[in-house]
Amino acid sequence: MPEKPRPCGEEHPRSKLLRMDRIPHIWCPTCGIGTVVNCFLEALLATPLNLKKTVIVSGIGCTGRVAGYVNLDSFHTTHGRAIPFATGLYLSNPDLNVVVFSGDGDLSAIGGNHFIHAARRNQNLKVICVNNFIYGMTGGQMAPTTPVGAKTSTTPFGCFEHPFNLPHLAASSGATYVARWTSLHLRRLKWTIQEALSRRGFAFIEVIAPCSTVYARRNKLGTGFDLMKFYKENSVIRHGADTKDVDISFQGKIIVGKFVDVQKPTFLDQLNEGYSKVFGDKYVPYGSEKWHKMKSEFQVSAAKA
């Protein structure tokens, strides 16, 4: 067991939103996930959202562990299934702000089908994907995002498969908000998360992040500092870029920015509008105050039971 860090006499500035009794976390030094979590928490604090109603869902893998550290209602589900779980959770109470944290393998390999269908429906979910080009937790295997030529534990002679361009996948499936940053773009990432949280609909934010332990080491890309320097020198901000053009090649330029920000009725908007047309006043809009009252009629408190 690692020793608990010694108290420095100061409170962690984000301690209210972290489960401090679970720190230290499991992530390696120089991993990008903690940085993304920090940006997310700063964004949360800057939004007017009711944090009681803000929930986080994640799948499996290094990024899947985010749910365990954030002090909100948090659900650590099965591999790839964070999005359908989040779909059920949101639809059981549309007052909830549901955020999904996922790694690239979790989201686009085993969970790929769920990802495109939630985007197609414009389900009101905010999806943050930490893309480190690899399966970190299992020891560095090839992912659907691994660039051509990169070495992984299952592509020891280099990856020969075409990778996914995740912003393009999201946008072409129907996502109404799509952005990409690296874990070096702290303030921009925070603003983007904040903006995405204010949007209604399926928002997708990809964050390119380093995995020094199993990706950079195997590809001889240097230390954590070298990786940050690489992002600094090779990120190209191009807001509104056509997502077709934001492919990532091995150690090539990374196009970042906000690519899509449009409005479209969500799954629930469509449903409420459709049923209201058919049934008129007989239909109680799903998620309305009256609907919440109907829902509560099926519940009792343990004190009364």
Binding site: V57, F75, T77, T78, R81, I83, P84, F85, A86, T87, G88, L89, Y90, L91, S92, N93, L96, N113, H114, H117, K295, F298, Q299
Partner: peptide, 15 residues
């Protein structure tokens, strides 16, 4: 797979 995941999510949301 998604159906069963959504059912569990909805259970936690109170339905």
């Amino acid at each position: 797979i998604a159906s069963m995941a959504a059912v569990i999510g909805a259970a936690w949301g109170g339905l």
